[in-house]
Design a binder for these strands. Sequence first.
DNA 1: GCCGTTTTCGGCCCGACTGTTTTCAGTCG
Length: 574
Amino acid sequence: MQNAVIAAHFDELADLLELQGANPFRVRAYRNAARTIENVSQSIADLCVKPDHDLTEFAGIGKDLAGKIETLVQTGTLPQLEELRAQFPPDVLKMFKIPGLGPKKVAALIDQLHIGSLHDLRAACEAGRVATLKGFGKKTEQSILAGLEQVQQAVQRVLLPVAKTEAEAIVADLAKSREIQKVEVAGSCRRLKETCGDLDLLATSSKPEAAMDLLAAHPLVEKVLARGETKQRVRLRSGIELDLRVVPEDSYGAALQYFTGSKEHNIVIRKRAQERGLKVNEYGVFRGEHFVAGRTEEDVYAAVDLPWIPPELRENRGEVELAEQHKLPKLVEVDDIHGDLHMHTTATDGTASIREMAEAAKERGLKYIAITDHSKRVTMANGLDAKRLRAHWKEIDKVRGQMSGIEILCGIECDILEDARLDLDDDVLSEADWVIAVLHYGLKQPRDQIQKRLMCALTNPHVDIIGHPSGRLIGSRNPADIVYEEMFRAAADHGVMMEINANPQRLDLDDVHAAAAKEHGIPIVISTDSHSVNGFDTMRYGVYQARRAGLTKHDVANTKTWGEFKKLLARRKP
DNA sequence: GCCGTTTTCGGCCCGACTGTTTTCAGTCG
């Protein structure tokens, strides 16, 4: 059972307990535990099998929750959750998805109107029965109807590039206005999270009204959903929702810190403030009524005795402790990258020739690249067999001889077949400068078989790196069931590197697992997996993911100069 | 339900906005 599945069980438990009117702090304990479990890189289920394991070592997991996790892992279910589910109609969790409906209102709908499904809910609203309930009214009824529509066509979380592009376009336009002094993206988009649920903008203005009018009239905005004196929520034409907060100049840093989140990080910061007799909110840091800090984020962190923490790290995964000890990593930057070691050409499913790719890479300042077309298993992409691959490498050699200022490696993206063999024989692989081994097919195989396949690649002396290890496509394809601990241990033992694939749909390894790979001392390579010359521009998304994992320049192998990288390779390929 | 350099009981982050209310509960981020 994967950690995300365990976490989902606790989140559902929390929802249902809330509906039941349970102690809100007890509910919170379940949600905290869910977040903790999600952020652990090792498999909790695997941990449970070990003889001396102690789940209560994790923050927010005590004796009771540890027991529940054990039960869940061993039996696949939780009696407490089963009982709660039986008490409520099956559609109950869907009702929470409707904006404006929380546990209290949903409970009222179930208890007083016997609503059992979204269909019932619609009918009750249309019949005007919902408006008659205490605490409900005509407006609530209308907003539920609107919410029902929205749930049907709900926009899922959007990929970072989409969110970032829209947010930055709006910021650029707002920044032109005289009424607005500062404006910036906050929220998960500023933390460079791989997906964003909504967008948060923060601005300072002497005329908040005017700032909000500007946003409301922006061509990307479809509708104003809510508006107060300092806060406006709008829906963009793309379906993404965006919040704008307008704050006074003196509060800008505090507001930026607050609205950048994450929620979990902010809770830790506020607790820290409390311990120091301070209160932190979006307007500043206060001692009693007295304003202590808030103009810049640095001031806010300094007020709680911390150095400034990069937004990418603000997830309450240990960054506060690192900051406290002045051990925050100096995060890798896009400009640190000197090579790109995963790309395709017209030999398989790319759209540019070897030369075109090499020239485009050189234009972007790269000093070395690896051409890594597909192996034969990927028939759809016209994958290469041994004969074609050797001919392809000859072509690469030719271009290499004609170009200066960039080194070109003869590589291959070799499939790890479903039966745990590599798609090309050792004698071919031994001739390559750079071998990426990847899972493309059979991602749904049971974990033992997945593990067997990975081990086959990791123990092969010619394999340099595992590419997009989990095989996931964000929002559309689930990751393979990998035992990361075992994979990393084997990679470290055999000197195999790990890829962060920079394709925004992949970002694989993800942040949590890339951090774990770093712990094992495994060199990480950030690669674009370009299929065209424009593909190189996605490198930054891979770097963002690496930053979220806390990786420095020294953790990322393709920040090395060609000379240094060559030495690293020579150690494996004498 | 968790947690502890004031601790094993009594806390647990904080404020804006909406709609339904006449002073506030519920929801949301």
